[in-house]
Structure formats: C-alpha cells, structure tokens
Write a protein that binds this DNA or RNA. Structure first.
Lengths: 338, 338
DNA sequence: TTGTAAGCGTTATCAG
DNA sequence: CTGATAACGCTTACAA
C-alpha cells in the first residue's frame, strides 16, 4: 500500500461520498458544471470529514496556473525592496497566490538563475523590482531568458528601466531628482552636492541627470557630484569628504534615502548642524526617511508592487508603460538658507 | 492538438534522442540508475537543443518534495523579519529551493490561512519567524493546523516562543534584555525607563522580565515601564511622555531597535542630549541600529533564518530547541553617567 | 543498460 | 446530472 496524503485526495472524497472522482472535483472547485444539490452536499460533507484540501501542485500541473508570483529584488533587507514586496504580497495573498522572493544583489547572472527556477515552477508572473545596468555584459542573456519566459506565458513586469521587452510600472526618476533638487534650490541654497547611486545603473544615471538639469536650469554649479552606491556607508563617507572641502556646500542630496541618511549621520557625528549649516535630502521616501524625518521625494513604492501583482492575478495584458507620480516631501532636514 | 510547453517535456527529449522517456529522465535528473555514456550524451544533446528544463511542478508532485520553503513573518518591511528572510533565502537559493514569504501582521488567523496555502503546495518546511501571544484565542486552531502540517511531513520551525509543538531556534530574550539593562546600569545610571513591546506577546513578556530582573538585581527601581508595540511611533510617543515627567530617568531602553530609535528621535527633537542627558539602548541590532549608531544587544537574526533553512533543505530532524547567543553592542547612544 | 507502465492528484472532454 | 478516461510531466519499480 502506498503512503496516503493525510489530507486525502479527491479519490478518497469521492469514495466516501459515493460519487466519482470527477463529480467530487466539480463540486470542490467552483466548476460551472451542474451538480445536483444532494450530491453536492454529500461531497462537501465528505470533504469536511476527511479534512480534504486540494493539492495545489496537481492542480497547477493540469491547469497551467500555478498561482505563484516571483519578485526579483536586489536585497529584501533594503526598505525600498521590502516595501515593494509587501505591496506584491498583500494583493497576492488576497487572491490566494504565493509570493516567491529572490534576492539577486543586483547581479544579472543571479537574476538569470532565479528566473530559470521560477520558470520551472511555471510562475504566472515575475516582477523585476530593481533597475538594470547600462552595458550589462549579461544583458543579452537575461533578455533572452525573459523572452523565453514570456513565450511560456509567464507575465514579466519591470518596476524600473530594464533592457528587456516587458511592460513597466515606473517612477520618473529624472523628474523626481529634478523636483527634489529644485525644491532644495528654492530654499535659497546655491551650492548643492549630490551623492550618486551605483555607477552604471539606469536609476543612477536618470537621477543624476535630473539633478544636473535642475542645477543648470537654476544657473548653479551642477558638478558637485560624489560617487555613491545607494548605501548608508557611502553616504557617510561622501559626507565626510564633502565637509572637509575648502568651501563646503549648503546642501547635500542623496540619490536615495539610505545614502542621505548616511550623510546625515556623518554630519551629526561631525557636529555640523542639519539643517542649520547644511540641508540634506534623499529620494524615494522609505520608512527610514520617515524615521529620520528626512526631506525626500516620495515615490509610491508599495503601489508599484501592488499594481504589478494586480496585473498578474487579473491576467490583464498591460499597457507597455505606466508612470506613477512622485511628490516632494519637505521634512526637518532641510531649511531655508539662513 | 494541445498547446505544448515551449521548453518541451521529457517525451520530446526522449523522442529527439531516440530513447525512452524513462532513460531521458534518468540522465536528466542525477539518477543512480546506470545509463551508457553514449545514450547519456545523446540525451544531454537533445535536451540542450530543445532548451529543455524539467517541470518542477510535475517533479514535486511525484517525488513529494516541492523544494518550497515558507517563511511566516509579521511584516517584511520590518528589518527584523527582513534579515531573517534574507538568511532563509540565501541558503534556500543555493540549494535550488524557493522561498515563499507570508506577511501575517501578527494575526493568528492569517497565519492559519497562509499555513493552509503552504500545505496545499506541499511546502517542505515552514518557518514561523515571529513570537506568539499569551492566551491567543486562535492558538489552539493554529496548533492543530501545525500538527496536521507536520503529519503531512512538512517540517515546521519556530524562531521564537510559540504555543505549538515544533523545534525552535531562538534567542534568549530574557537574557538579552537582562544583559543590555545590566550594561546600561553598569554605566552608572540608576533610573532607567523601559518601553515595552506589544502586550501579550511572549517576546515582550520575556524581555520585560529580563529588564525587571536586572533592575531589581541591581537594586534600582524596576517599575518605570511604558507600554509600546515595537513601533517607531510608540517609541517616539513614550519618550515624549518620559521627558515630560517631573524627575526624568537617566536612560531609556526600548524592547526593540525600532522603538529605541523612535525614542531617540523624540529626544533629539526635544533637544534632550543623547547620551549626554539621557542614554538610549535597543534590542536585536537590526540595520536600523547600525545606522543610528544605537547601543543595542545583537542577536544573530540572519543566522536564525539561515539555520532554519539549512535544517529544512538537509532534512535533518532537529533538536527540539537551539538557543543562539546574543551580545551587547555598545555604541554612541549610551554613555557613563555624567 | 534500456523500456514499459503504474502512479502522483487534478481537470476536462466526451459519452451516457 | 454523473462517470470513465485521457491528459499534465515526471519518477520509479519491474521487466526485458
């Protein structure tokens, strides 16, 4: 005798109710196929007695709908990605879907591997949360993998600029950077430094462009750029360097909140008053920013995830690009030039 | 004609290589069954040509090993849970497993639902990351659900105190709270306030006990307790209340880092010098704590996740309780009593 | 060393 | 309205 699943199978339910496996199936999944009320009741009763619960695996195999959504993030510990994931999971769970999380540490080769695994599980959708790289050596491979995945009917979505074909739900990075820079300049600051994101990332490039354009539109120096990598540590280090300069700037803008908070910490450590002496601003408005009361530009990160998940569970074919709005959020780390 | 998976099936590979589906299967999964080098080569070649990749679903169905790990967290945006999840995913991915994340917001009913879904997918393991509640009205239901899951051969692990039967990998909450309190007292402070975790949670109770015991062992007032809920906001609010008192304490300890950082923010906002006037300490040492340079007690959260995942992928039957060590991490938010 | 065939637990087609 | 039965794609005795 073979080992039986404790929860039983449709066969068990059918036997117990004295009906065929087909009939049992029909009442237990909301099939449109007609079933008499009497039989229905018996099947339901049998299922209850046996504590029956259908095998999602078997069902997925035959229906080709796995109810699995994959979300590819850089690092789930990063609040930016965590908030996206939360958005995904909230709508996924409500629809009975499972959310698989894959940390790729911004490495394209890992993304390729993880995408393969997700494909093997016939994930219904895969969400790429992070930005892509300019001139990515593995870019073509990833694009090919994505293409195959889509041909297999997996719906792929990107929440940032990516070098492969798929619908996107994105923020206007350039615009967001422009707006926060513009806001800082509107406070009367003329010399503002910028701590960039990781070189090569589209998101970094776009935000930097936004900063530069805002600066030059305002007729101020746009070259005070320090290279960062979205990390707290680089923000900290860059800020230290910045205040050591002969003629330090009046404001610092970080390419993301984490970097800006690193800068903030460095300034406080060095007893440089914020915003008294130097104003600081970040981007994306993650929880960290709220905690630090950091001026930033809010992009609806949670909504990115939720919207992407909604498209997947609803099976809608999406418009190729949706841009979600951002808005400047003034807080206590910036002040009018004293 | 029925729609074919683009990646093909074993049948396709077999046909292409001119061998049976069984042989193809044998070479394509590292089966011990002998296969001649010639055939093996042909199968491999065929698989390559067809871009074949096995269906994880079908495989899971027959082998009863889904290679799925579920992790039940309160909220993935909480750094504590995110770091655990990262630990899980790192070892899971290396072993070809997928990590499913379930946000339960500390609601037992949601945990029950999510566990059911995970069971339907025949998850190989489920990790409960968060603490349980004293006198949980749904506690018995969850315990029953866990029992059924385990009977179905799902290995359940808890990373905190839980009211159901299963192996645990935990920290010594009482000891950790005791040690950080003891450390703060060793700095010469005599009046120290405590901002607790959510009432009813085992973790809250244990940490509070640790605080109280350390206080009374040192012969100082152990009653300066303010109710919190592990949130930044409550830490902030409590700190405001604390400094408004007639005779404010010399130190504040938060039941977790987030609360402590909330308190920190309130103090800074109110221009109370930290640690000059009041020392502040937290617990668990999440990234937030490092960012804020907060004195805290480090518990190896990432390791919790990693260790749990390792047990699941290795299939080892675990010792019923493993306690991972903690250690006090002095940083800049505490100082010797001036 | 290779192949045949019986599942794994569903759904869905097609007859009754 | 109900029931066989053929998939879904794979693994694994059991034979050859």
């Amino acid at each position: 005798m073979t080992i039986r699943r404790l929860s039983g199978s449709l066969a068990d339910v059918g036997r117990q109710a004295g009906v065929s496996i087909a009939t049992a199936s029909r009442v237990l999944n909301g099939s449109a196929h007609p079933v008499s009320d009497a039989t229905r009741e018996r099947v339901l009763e049998a299922a209850r007695e046996l504590g029956y619960s259908p095998s999602a695996l078997a069902r997925a195999l035959v229906t080709r709908r796995s109810r699995i959504i994959g979300v590819m993030v850089g690092d789930i510990v990063d609040a930016y990605f965590a908030e996206i994931t939360r958005g995904v999971e909230d709508v996924a769970a409500r629809a009975g879907y499972m959310t698989i999380i894959c940390n790729a540490d911004r490495r394209t080769d890992l993304e390729i591997d993880q995408l393969a695994v997700l494909s093997d599980y016939q994930a219904e959708g895969v969400i790429f949360a992070g930005s892509g790289f300019l001139d990515d050596p593995r870019g073509a491979d990833l694009a090919a993998a994505v293409k195959r995945a889509r041909e297999r009917d997996i719906s792929v979505l990107a929440l940032a600029v990516r070098d492969f074909e798929c619908p996107r739900i994105v923020a206007d990075n350039r615009g967001a950077a422009y707006d926060i820079t513009d806001y800082v300049l509107s406070l009367g600051h003329r010399r503002v430094a910028y701590i960039s994101g990781p070189p090569g990332l589209y998101a970094s490039r776009d935000r930097l462009e936004g900063f530069r354009r805002a600066a030059s539109d305002a007729g101020v120096e746009a070259g005070l750029v320090h290279e960062g990598d979205f990390s707290y540590e680089q923000g900290y280090a860059a800020a230290l360097q910045i205040i050591a300069e002969a003629d330090p700037p009046e404001a610092i803008i970080g390419a993301n909140d984490e970097t800006a908070i690193g800068a903030l910490a460095a300034l406080r450590q060095a007893r440089v008053e914020v915003p008294g002496r130097i104003s600081v601003a970040g981007m994306t408005d993650t929880r960290l920013a709220r905690f630090s009361d950091l001026t930033t530009v809010s992009v609806p990160v949670y909504q990115f995830g939720a919207a992407a998940a909604r498209r997947i569970v609803s099976g809608e074919s999406s418009p190729s690009e949706t841009v979600l709005p951002h808005r400047v959020v003034p807080r206590s780390t910036t002040a009018r030039r004293g």
